[in-house]
Structures are given as C-alpha cells and as structure tokens.
C-alpha cells in the first residue's frame, strides 16, 4: 500500500515537472502594416572562404606606401568630379 502511494506521488511529481518544462507557445507579432516584404539578399549570407594566404611578398607594397615622399610623387589627384548637386544631401 505504502509503495503504491510513493509510486503515485512520484508519477504526479514527474507530470508536474514535465508540465513546467514544456515551452509556452510563442505567437509571433504580426508584421508592421506599412512595411511590405521586400526580396533582398539579406537571408543568404555568403559562406566564408579559406583563410587568405599570404600569397606573395608584400615588401615592395609596404616600402612604397610608407614612404611619404614617394607617395607624394606618384599619387595622382583624381579629377574633380562635377559638383552639380544643390542643397543638403
């Protein structure tokens, strides 16, 4: 008899625990009415590739791009773009 009571209580406790662990159903919020769905490339992240491999000796790049005088001599100012816009952008 006592064993039966313990079995009953154990089963009841198990049911309560299972009930507590069950996740409540989450209802997603409705979408904002003014924002129609737009197909974008957002949902398709590009899988990353392999680690960039140091492919070649960069010492000449560094040598030039850390030398102020060389850069001043070689850098070409881009042609001034036509500036036709009027007003604040």
């Amino acid at each position: 008899m006592r064993k039966g009571i313990w079995l009953f209580l154990g089963g009841l406790l198990g049911l309560i625990l299972v009930g507590c662990l069950a996740r409540p159903e989450i209802t997603p919020l409705p979408p904002s009415p003014m924002l129609p769905a737009v197909p974008t490339l957002a949902a398709t992240p590009v899988p990353p590739t392999e680690t960039p491999v140091p492919a070649a000796d960069s010492s000449t790049c560094i040598a030039c791009h850390t030398d102020e005088e060389t850069l001043k001599a070689l850098a070409v100012e881009p042609e001034k773009a036509e500036h036709l816009s009027e007003g604040e952008g």
């Binding site: 140091p54 070649a56 000796d57 790049c61 850390t66 102020e68 850069l71 850098a75």
Partner: peptide, 30 residues
C-alpha cells in the same frame, strides 16, 4: 590623394600584417 593610401606598417597589428597586402588586396608583389 597620397594621404588616403599612406600607411604605417606598425599600425596594421601583427595578425593583419602577417597576411601581407596582396592576400586581401591582390596586386603584384616584387
């Protein structure tokens, strides 16, 4: 124009510097 591409190789930080320029930017070394 020259200031836009003027760099300090010490500013790159070791991890990025170890990759070198060409690994990310392409171009031809040497």
């Amino acid at each position: 124009a020259w200031e836009k591409v003027f760099l300090d190789d010490q500013a790159l930080g070791k991890v990025h510097a170890d990759l070198g320029c060409i690994a990310c930017h392409g171009g031809v070394g040497g």
